[in-house]
């Protein structure tokens, strides 16, 4: 298996990162060598995410599953308990399962599980929680933009030079 290098290049702004990403993409298309490319930034930048190559976000599927599960659980909770208490609960001619009243509980449960599943979906999609990699700089949380790369040994020097050419402030490596 070919040796790989993990690098984090820090840049002063998004424009410089964009230029570097485009050039790395072109290089990778021609001859490969860049195994993985990710950006870390203090704020979200949807346009640059597109340039890197947006991976699909699946959070909404979790949300939908949670909401549907909540709706069903809400119904089962109210209807199930009403049924189980049927022998002791005097209904006085009213419906055993009062749908209009139960709709309120179902609505709240839909939201409750929908919210929880959305958070789970985010954690799943963002691969969190996780231990921080050694390739991290607190300046990314401040004002610098980072480019995380995994490159093959054969392309290591070229990629490094390319990063410096694009005004990288610092290039950190994971030994």
């Amino acid at each position: 298996m070919a040796k790989r290098h993990h690098m984090l290049a820090l840049f002063n702004n998004f424009d410089e990162v964009r230029e570097a990403i485009i050039e790395l993409k072109v290089m990778d298309l021609r001859e490969g060598g860049v195994e993985e490319m990710r950006m870390t930034s203090p704020i979200p930048h949807p346009e640059l995410e597109e340039v890197i190559g947006a991976r699909p976000v699946l959070v909404q599927r979790f949300t939908f599953t949670g909401a549907m599960l909540g709706l069903i659980c809400g119904f089962l909770l109210t209807a199930g308990l009403a049924q189980s208490m049927f022998s002791v609960q005097p209904q006085g001619g009213k419906a055993v399962i009062p749908i209009p009243a139960d709709l309120i509980i179902m609505f709240e449960m839909t939201i409750l599980l929908g919210v929880w599943f959305t958070v789970f979906g985010f954690l799943f999609g963002a691969r969190l929680p996780r231990r921080r990699s050694h390739l991290y700089s607190r300046r990314v949380g401040e004002d610098q933009v980072g480019l995380l790369l995994e490159v093959l040994d054969s392309h290591y020097e070229r990629v490094k030079n390319l990063l410096w050419q694009h005004k990288a402030l610092e290039v950190m490596e994971d030994s």
Binding site: R38, M39, I43, T63, F122, A126, S133, Y136, V140
Partner: peptide
């Protein structure tokens, strides 16, 4: 939770926040 602000994290974060 080990947040480092990668593009993947931000993308999921934005969508989740909207939902």
């Amino acid at each position: 939770l080990g947040w480092v602000g990668t593009d993947r994290q931000w993308r999921n974060f934005r969508k989740g926040y909207l939902l």
